[in-house]
Design a protein around this nucleic acid. Structure first.
Lengths: 344, 344
DNA sequence: TTGAAAGCGCTACCAT
DNA sequence: ATGGTAGCGCTTTCAA
């Protein structure tokens, strides 16, 4: 049976089939090889100027766009850097970091792709990512185990970088120990004479990854002192905050680290409505240093968090891709400093 | 020259090459065809149970993961739904929408991918997306022109959906006319007797897509009335807000629609610090109905925005993919309702 | 029930 | 300077 060429006039114009480099070659009257040379500016081969023009014109006319899958199949590798799409809305801090990162990786000629597979977890997710044969994978959180790393590496990923509290065997790690945040908050409160310290723990799921280490950090910092830590579960609603505030005096707390600025604002308002004076009766400190915290009265004290620059991570990725054999790097990258304002 | 097989003992174990279905076949002692049948559960072919087991075991042992590019190259299409990664940190509203969408598309067996190419614009971006041969492309904003749509369709995209103020020739559209937001805000202020109405326009770039239509909406709603609209450029800093507040009385405004709740909170605080009484001297209304607006005193009035459900869009995508010939659908999907609290 | 082989679109080697 | 062609990993007819 004769293969009907793409350019067959019998094809309905409504759904023209996708032009390939062969179509371009045919139209330009050259070979597919020449098309490839021209469109990729292959320096090892010199193509005459008229030919180049004809090829470019043909490509233009057909609206030819190279097929990335075919290309990377042939090349045996891609320049795709994959990361899972964040499952929870990402704050301005993390958002800026992500943007920097994507920009920096683009500059290094990588294609950045966020894979949105919210249903998958752990090694299933790793397998799904591996199908795309990314050259590097960046994984926030701690969903990935050594198995997952192995799957990714076996399927050609030259760099796997985790961003989270703990590293993983075989992968590079940007260690972001949120315990530091809790520690700084606790030290601050303790230094200012507070001893009965509450720690808000959000009830919203997906936040445990941050809230647990932040709570642990508080406990660490206060270990061996005379301070007492009270865990305060709190849903992100006015009602929940009001309920917590209603039993506040009974709790006998003189300070609270409220997980982050948003929970802090929520709780602070509820406390004020309840007649609790801040900071006299209870000191309040948040985290993340949101602009909005400065708008409250009293202004909200907070823990300013410093993330690594996106450029930094991009360079780590690039280094790792270039030398996949190198020992995994581990960097402690989360800076936390108290910004003392008026609420504590 | 003899081709050294993948399993050659001469390969350094440190960098084993990626296992292919041929490797699985070899290990299981069957043909590549059989491997494909087994791993894809091809119903048209019956494979004996022992063979199935051997294949699965071999795949497991090698850590085999199919190569998505090769598969879709062969198949002639993919199930990838592509969308550009948001360039600005996305709020809780949009964030939830995105998550729903990804979840719903995953359920429909699509692979959702966010393409992070912050450097590219318009048709360049479209070309970059087209290289990945997605079966559908979702584009927020108005960066995409008819040219871009054409490129995408010619390269095999069976559905292109824009999400933004205006549709594009040839593409489906979820029309999100932010003018509605401004209109509702303006109507509310006007109904409450305000006549000299300021509209905050953020100076931060990337927000024009929202701020311009919101401003236009205010103008529309007030056209033909005795109200006067004043445009108020404002950067998202305390200093800028203080500067604006300092010249507030000179502006002679009795109301302000502050773009969104965050700018509203920023401005409201600055006005209060300046001694401007809210709402007596100046009414303030924001938009987005953030939780935080309820924490201010007075509580912030706002325009609650209703986005379509992610499921809805996922179904539109699926419909369009199944029937690419159908006429582009256009849906007006942005709901806006004033939530009147105490600041207006 | 299983295997052989073609071919998806592309690039890079080797000829000419 | 340009063309022929092999082969990347996969699925799917067709044959056995």
């Amino acid at each position: 049976m004769v293969q009907i060429p793409n350019t067959s006039a019998s094809a309905p114009p409504a759904q023209r089939s996708v032009p390939t480099s062969a179509d371009v070659a045919r139209l330009a009257g050259v070979s597919r090889a020449t098309v490839s040379y021209v469109l990729n500016n292959t320096s090892a081969v010199r193509i005459s100027e008229p030919t180049r023009r004809r090829v470019h014109e043909a490509a233009e006319e057909l609206g030819y766009v190279p097929h990335a899958a075919a290309r990377s199949l042939r090349a045996g590798h891609s320049r795709m850097v994959l990361m899972p799409a964040p499952a929870i809305p990402v704050g301005p801090l993390h958002g800026q970091f992500l943007n920097e990162l994507q920009w920096a990786l683009s500059r290094l000629d990588y294609t950045v792709v966020q894979h949105g597979a919210l249903g998958l977890h752990g090694d299933d997710a790793a397998r799904a990512w591996a199908e795309l044969r990314p050259v590097a994978v960046l994984v926030p959180g701690q969903g990935l185990g050594p198995q997952g790393v192995a799957v990714l590496k076996r399927s050609g990923a030259r760099a796997v970088v985790t961003l989270g509290p703990t590293g993983v065997e075989g992968a590079h790690a940007l260690l972001m120990d949120h315990a530091t945040v809790g520690r700084e908050a606790a030290r601050h409160l303790h230094a200012r004479g507070r001893r009965r310290i509450g720690v808000v723990v959000p009830e919203e799921s997906g936040l445990e990854a941050y809230s647990t280490p932040r709570l642990d950090g508080v406990r660490q910092a206060l270990r061996g002192t005379d301070a007492v830590v009270t865990e305060l579960p709190l849903g992100y609603t006015e009602e929940a905050a009001a309920r917590l505030a209603a039993r506040w005096r009974g709790l006998g707390l003189d300070a609270v680290f409220a997980y982050n600025d948003e929970y802090a604002m929520l709780l602070m308002r509820a406390l004020q409505d309840e007649g609790v004076r801040i900071p006299e009766d209870t000191a309040v400190i948040g985290a993340d240093d949101l602009m909005l915290g400065r708008l409250l009265r009293p202004r909200l004290s907070t823990v300013h968090i410093e993330l690594p620059s996106g450029r930094e991570l991009a360079e780590l990725v690039d280094r790792a891709v270039r030398d996949p054999g190198a020992a995994p790097e581990r960097h402690e990258v989360l800076g936390a400093t108290v910004v003392h304002r008026d609420s504590s």
